[in-house]
Design a protein around this nucleic acid. Structure first.
Lengths: 150, 150
DNA sequence: CTCTAGTTGCAACTCAGTCTCAATTATGAT
DNA sequence: ATCATAATTGAGACTGAGTTGCAACTAGAG
C-alpha cells in the first residue's frame, strides 16, 4: 500500500484529520533520505513555502511514528532524530562520536536472542533500542578517535 | 582494589581533588542498590546532612562514570539514571513501560555479534546501549499493557 | 451547508542539564 | 607548617528540546 494511503487510513481510523500541514509534513518526510531532526524538517518546509509551526511538527511526528511511516531514533542527551521506514526493514544504529555519522546494521541473530530473553523473563516487548557508539573508519584513523564516553 | 581507593587513584591521575563533596557522593553511590537518578541522590545526601549542590552532582557523576564506578543508563526522552558498577559485570536493560521497573539481562552472544559487526564495518566501538521496552510479567497481566510506543 | 471535534500558531512554560563567577579549598612545592 | 595556585564549590541565570493553554480556524460527517 502506498505510504500516503497508509497514512490517510491511519488518520481516519483514529478520527484524525488530513490537514494541509500533515500533508506537507508527510510529503517531506517521505522524500528525505537518511536521518533528520525537527530543525532539518522545519528548514525544508520553510524553503518550499509551507508554513508549519514547530509545535505542529512536534505534535505530528509521533503520529507518523505510530502510523509506522517513520521511526524515532533517540540519540544521546535527548536529541531525537527520525528516519523514513516505508519500504525498509528494521535495523539498528552505530553512531560515530567523531563526525556524527550514523551507520546502520541489522542482525536477525540479535533479534532472536532478544525474543528469547523476553520469553524467559515473561516480558512483553513492544520495542527496543540498540545503539553502538564509537568511531567510524575515517574518524578512528585520524587523531580524533580518543574521545570520552559519558 | 576497593572502590574508594580506585576512585582516589583516578582522581590523582587526572589532577582532580578529593573534596568533601566527592567523598559524600562516592559513599552514597556505593551504598544504593538498584538504579537511581540525580534527584534520588540529592534527597539521600540531604537526609544525611551532606549539603551537595545540584551543580556539583551534575559535575561529578561523569567523573564517577569515567572512573568506572558507576554506569549511566539513558532512558527515553533524556532522563538519565545511574547504577553502581563495582563488583558487577556488564549487562543491558529491559524497561517496563507500566511500572517503570528495570530488569537486567546479559548475553555474551549479543556482545560477540556486536564486535563482529564493528569489525566488519571498521567501526571502533567505545560503548553501546541496548534496551528492550515493554511490559513486565505483572503489568502485562493486568489491563495496563496496551500502551503505546512513541 | 452546518456543526463540531480536531487542529493550528503563538507564546508562555517546563524540565534536565550547563554555565558563570566570586569565594573556598585540596594539594604539591617550599 | 605555610604558601601558592589550580581545582572546586554553590547559587542562580541560562539553554535547548519539547510541551501546553488558548483563541481562532477547518476538515469532514451528516
Amino acid at each position: 500500500m502506498p505510504a500516503a494511503e497508509r497514512f490517510a487510513l491511519y488518520l481516519s481510523k483514529h478520527r484524525l484529520k488530513m490537514t494541509r500541514e500533515r500533508r506537507a509534513l508527510l510529503e517531506h518526510v517521505l522524500s528525505v533520505r537518511g536521518h533528520f531532526d525537527v530543525d532539518d524538517l522545519l528548514r525544508r518546509l520553510g524553503r518550499t513555502g509551507h508554513r508549519v509551526s514547530r509545535a505542529t511538527l512536534y505534535r505530528n511526528l509521533p503520529v507518523l511514528v505510530e502510523s509506522g511511516l517513520i521511526h524515532k531514533v533517540e540519540m544521546a542527551r535527548g536529541q531525537a532524530r527520525y528516519e523514513r521506514m516505508v519500504g525498509r526493514h528494521h535495523h539498528d544504529h552505530m553512531v560515530c562520536l567523531g563526525c556524527g555519522d550514523i551507520l546502520e546494521f541489522e542482525s536477525p541473530e540479535v533479534e532472536r536472542i532478544q525474543e528469547e530473553v523476553c520469553r524467559r523473563k515473561r516480558f512483553v516487548m513492544t520495542g527496543h533500542t540498540h545503539q553502538i557508539r564509537g568511531y567510524c573508519g575515517s574518524c578512528a584513523g585520524d587523531g580524533r578517535a580518543r574521545g570520552k564516553e559519558r
